[in-house]
Write a protein that binds this DNA or RNA. Sequence first.
DNA 1: GCCGGTGATACCCGCCGGGTATCACAGGAC
DNA 2: GTCCTGTGATACCCGGCGGGTATCACCGGC
Lengths: 287, 287
Amino acid sequence: METLETRELRYFLAVAEELHFGRAAQRLGMAQPPLSRAVQQLERRLGVRLLERDRRGVALTDAGEMLLHEGRAALDAVTAAARRTSRAGATDGTGARRNRLVLAVKAAASHELLHKLLDAYAAEPGAVEVEVLPSGTCEQGEMLRDGRADVALMHTPFNSLAGFDSEELLTEGQIAVLPAGHPLAARASLSLAEVTDVTDLPLARWSHDGTYPPGPGPEIHDQTQLAQLIALGRTVAVFPDSARAWLWSDHAAVPLTDAPPVVTHIVWPAHSRSLPLATLIRTATRL
Amino acid sequence: METLETRELRYFLAVAEELHFGRAAQRLGMAQPPLSRAVQQLERRLGVRLLERDRRGVALTDAGEMLLHEGRAALDAVTAAARRTSRAGATDGTGARRNRLVLAVKAAASHELLHKLLDAYAAEPGAVEVEVLPSGTCEQGEMLRDGRADVALMHTPFNSLAGFDSEELLTEGQIAVLPAGHPLAARASLSLAEVTDVTDLPLARWSHDGTYPPGPGPEIHDQTQLAQLIALGRTVAVFPDSARAWLWSDHAAVPLTDAPPVVTHIVWPAHSRSLPLATLIRTATRL
DNA sequence: GCCGGTGATACCCGCCGGGTATCACAGGAC
DNA sequence: GTCCTGTGATACCCGGCGGGTATCACCGGC
């Protein structure tokens, strides 16, 4: 039966995302005609219409929608295989095997926990070098899926653990981080509603791949920016307890009574079978 | 950077499984020299030695081991994408869309539950046709992974739910199924140890892709065979409670006190996003 | 020493993936 | 109406590479 080469998958995904053969071809660094032909071949091979060609533009059929989702996952799995394999065979300058573990963590989260974990793991027999890979807002899942990382620290309810194996490490409450002088900063505790309703301190909007959600708050893409804006009395933010570690003297932290607790998990691809990874996980759960 | 075509993956997996270029080439329906060359190209492209070539035979390096595992998963994902896509676009004779759900179930398990589930789902608005795919001993996981199935009923602790999303449906105890005339059949309950220690009734050995684990028990590959052997007083078996439904008059069922409970789950690939599937899952959890 | 069997090499060919040029067609502007 | 524009599809050509056959290099064993 069919084979579905990854080249065809890449081609189809480009077209399905751009919904335009010309732009897709440009993105792929090739001309439009062979791209059209390749997609037609793919459709014939699968015996399925993937795209509804209209005179101006392209639309996905149901089958195309399916291939868009499944194909992304498949392509991620393939590039993950390639990446992990070349990492597994990498050697350092001296030719010695250099078997690293790549751990993806949200940029400025859980310094405390991370420190303890790395120290404890380094003391384990058979520990390998751990490369800490700071990842953007919520992309640890992607990094595990496409092989850029072998294991990650994730935080529910912000990250989804779907499709991975995980172990719970730490549960913490959340705090509101306010300008030190703000009236609410004197309170012993706050509710989520009280924080989101403060009209003089609109919640900041994080950059999601270049675009910002609509709203009144300032646009940021960096935790330091946020800290500064809070210190300047321009906004307020909600963070897990452990964020107290990086607060400035201009900041005030007030516990939130009704915010969902943040649970830190150690997460890895379900099919992983590597001794160093197993050791790291065991170390983590014993903290 | 690299691309890793699925053709190369298939070739490498064949060699890694056979540990022999000649046999692998035969299995792939091609000659040995181009296969050797393809694997060399793959190694160069990844910058990694995958195989340790010895004069007689081949051994996997660590990187090769990694690519064997990751590559299998990746190839499964690719074929899953192909299968699900062509299913999503399949039409019946009249040209009407024929959107089925494929449900994998262990051959003779949970008739009761399955029946209720299918009936309840058929009554839901927007229900599509459900194809029930009887799967071998424990291969529902593979079927979900490579796209032969969209959703499965699995039974812990026999199946592993790793890498999937799941919901619990039903918990049941286990029973020993004995020949009706056997002394132990009169007992009100038994322990696992008592059952496994009965030397005149050695536990049967199930076929695992053509081979059998070592042991004294009879070799079987079919539930009817097992039922017959029990009725003939040649063996004993352990099953979930629901197996009572298919017992013969020559069989006796005795509850086991210390056997782990069997939990039936409904299981699906974590990234699934289909309305019919969501409906089926919701129906199942409401049973 | 010869033979069998391993994987690697050499060489050739045909196919197919990619390129350029062009077409067919639908909307708009006027 | 008649352009013009921009879409995807078609026609055709070429080079590379995937696959084949023949052969080599090597080693273990009878």
